[in-house]
Design a protein around this nucleic acid. Sequence first.
DNA 1: CCGTGGGTAGACCGATCGGTCTCCGGCCCC
DNA 2: GGGGCCGGAGACCGATCGGTCTACCCACGG
Lengths: 191, 191
Amino acid sequence: MTSAPETKLLQTAQRLFCSEGIHATGVARIIREAGVARKTLYDKYGSKENLLRAVFRAEADMWFRWFDHDLPGTGADARGRILHLFDLLQHWFAGGNFFGCVFINAVAEHEKEGGWVRGIALDHRRRINERLHGLVTEAGIEDAELATEKLSLVIDGAIVTAMVTANPSVAAIGRATAADILDHALRARAH
Amino acid sequence: MTSAPETKLLQTAQRLFCSEGIHATGVARIIREAGVARKTLYDKYGSKENLLRAVFRAEADMWFRWFDHDLPGTGADARGRILHLFDLLQHWFAGGNFFGCVFINAVAEHEKEGGWVRGIALDHRRRINERLHGLVTEAGIEDAELATEKLSLVIDGAIVTAMVTANPSVAAIGRATAADILDHALRARAH
DNA sequence: CCGTGGGTAGACCGATCGGTCTCCGGCCCC
DNA sequence: GGGGCCGGAGACCGATCGGTCTACCCACGG
């Protein structure tokens, strides 16, 4: 199993990178709040940048646990699972350690032309949208690409709004907007 | 009139803060690309933080030119003006100097508990939503608060998605989503 | 009982940070 | 034509940055 200092570093970095900002978080603070020696961080991760990459992986894992475990576990139909995704978002927002999506925040504070961060965020977004597209198609929506892009945009809007306002209930606004999108798309099919 | 070095500094900071990140942009780079002396920056703005405040003011001014000049100038009805806002967003995204909203980006890379940045972003958001609420009410929508929150969320989603993907046409996705929201709200009124 | 490996504590490095200061060139107005 | 001032060039400051390295501690297996 992974050693205790390693996971402690990952969790501390995940919290600090989002709540304080990545550039604003010094290595000294990470190791102090993780209760770990400086050398241990560099033994385990090699650099602050690699630690950030590990945080990316951890947040991506959370999303795919949602798609591959939590959502199928509800037993709901495709439309219900899409809407339930916003309940999972609300739970995330309300968890007390939510300060935005680390992918979005990282893109915001890194160079956007030619940097490596945006590429990772784009890949993450692509993989999320693949899962969304599957649900949308299963729901019987004709223009699945359009509906997927709309839902993806609403999800990002909910995440950013929750970060700025610190109000978890914006997920319910996103849920209602998603319902508008799905209703519109399914009504179009009924023609 | 404001002196040339002052506006040059503001424009350079606006571009660099968004394209490279605020913390990642050093004062040395700002003055180099602005072609201005270090002393001039501190004579005009006093600190990097105050320069950031000026960038906040400049971006807020853009939004209120939209609401108070551009949108009324279209002559469209309230629903049409709400949708036209997304055309303005698309023009903003496609301008070549778009790397996200400086308010959102600044919140993303600053401390979110007890910091001054989030307060400024919240105030900006409140003032935008006031204008949105006026348009939504004028469009004859019953639950104006809900529709306003939905539209605000879609706008933020479009901004963030455009930042990550560098694709201006996501504004059209936002426009179509806004149409779904308005249609749903206006159909509810027809009952 | 001793050796080894994982971990802590913390000194230390060069680079860069935001901010202050001095010096000097050139332009404008009396 | 001369004095005042705006602003460019850049040296300089203490603090902090990410990263390296040494010394020591301690638990565990032969």
